[in-house]
Amino acid sequence: MRLQVDGAHVQIDPDPEDTLVDVLRDELGSTAVRVGCRNGDCGTCTALVDGQCVKTCLVLAGRAEGARVETLASLGTETNPHPVQEAFLAEYAFQCGFCLPGMILSAVTLLADTPSPSDAEIRNALSGNLCRCTGYVNAVRAVRRAAAAR
């Protein structure tokens, strides 16, 4: 099957039981989606599939045939980070950083629809992702900051 990952066209031959996160990590070597639960709970396997923010551990790989997948790695660069990346970095919104794929992509998705979210909307938008290090205070601050920077 073919798919497009972070702009590159790739061809792979997944097992019928493979989920999209397996393919992205094991076949394509991505470090920008990770596995924390394989149960849809933690969000660290999050990617945008055809523009939709999804947890890739819940998607059978074959379902993504022909899809355009964007991971955290596609957002920005160190010298030109995406405003949400910049905000997470500036606010020290993470410690170990393991949860960032879901945190950042959820924030990006929120701001695309809701440019000036309330705190409740921010917390709701981040709620698909678990972070065990931080208590979310700085992540909420970071999303506020990214919203203000737009």
Binding site: G40, V59, S106, A125, S127, G128
Partner: peptide, 10 residues
């Protein structure tokens, strides 16, 4: 529905 943006999409 809980589970965040992702579960509401999926």
């Amino acid at each position: 529905i809980t589970g965040g943006i992702q579960i509401r999409n999926q």
